[in-house]
């Protein structure tokens, strides 16, 4: 079993690499954070946007980057609200309080009406993605067969984080590596606790390697319309104690 997983992970790395992604593998939380920080500094990254990521939480990535001068914006709505509030979970906060926080963050005058708040939040988050130098995602799954990252979400912003900034980093938990393209749906449609099958996530994006174009005559050029670099940080196991 163990060797089977290892084989799959190796295949994923090889295929992703062949498709143009840069794969870094580590088993230390600190190392993962430092690698990303180093990358950000080398590429002159001032601001980053981040999708929801359990793994990033585990290795405390946002704090690591923020405390070293890189602005990191959460883009998942719940995560963003929690970032505004400064604690998790953000649900216990009242709509009125949220309205105030959001007004401050967006510079718009907002009341507590959910629709208006959502519109303002969408505009703000969208703008973060447009302005950011770096996007940080976590792959829900990684497909060994093709070296493909699978990034899911209902809000659609996960795709903006993955495509708009000039550098994209995807964290991959080695436990989420699957063998085949067919395995994706089996894992995505897992039944709810009440027995009903939950809806498939609204936006499921597959990314395989780095985007290129041959449409400008004369050359095959990297970075068509997406990021110029696709980085994958594959994390084997993490231990909280490692993080400074």
């Amino acid at each position: 079993m163990q060797t089977e997983v290892a084989g799959m992970v190796e295949r994923f790395k090889a295929e992703a690499g062949k498709a143009g992604a840069l794969v870094y593998e580590t088993s230390s939380a600190e190392d993962a954070c430092n690698y990303i920080l180093r990358l950000a500094r080398e590429r002159d990254v001032k601001s980053a946007v981040k999708s929801k990521s359990k793994l990033a939480d585990e290795i405390k990535l946002r704090k690591h980057l923020e405390s070293r001068g890189i602005d990191v914006k959460e883009t998942d709505l719940r995560e963003w609200m929690a970032q505004l509030v400064g604690r998790k979970p953000a649900e216990r906060i009242t709509m009125a309080q949220l309205g105030k926080l959001m007004s401050k963050a967006t510079g718009e005058k907002l009341d507590s009406e959910p629709r208006a708040l959502l519109n303002a939040a969408s505009r703000a988050i969208r703008q973060y993605c447009i302005d950011a130098d770096m996007g940080i995602s976590e792959a829900d799954l990684a497909i060994a067969e093709t070296g493909t990252l699978v990034i899911a979400g209902n809000e659609g912003v996960t795709r903006l984080v993955a495509v708009l900034p000039r550098i994209h980093i995807t964290l991959v938990n080695y436990r989420n590596v699957v063998e085949l393209l067919e395995d994706v749906y089996v894992r995505l449609k897992s039944p709810k606790r009440d027995g009903s099958v939950k809806l498939v996530p609204g936006y499921v994006t597959y990314i395989t390697g780095r985007n290129t174009t041959a449409d400008i005559p004369g050359a095959v050029l990297a970075r068509a319309q997406g990021p110029s670099e696709e980085h994958i940080v594959l994390v084997r196991r993490t231990s909280r104690r490692n993080v400074a």
Partner: peptide
Amino acid sequence: KMPVYVSHITGPSRTDAL
């Protein structure tokens, strides 16, 4: 081997966070 991007879209963007 694979297209660089595959987008699966099921309905509009949605949230129940608010």
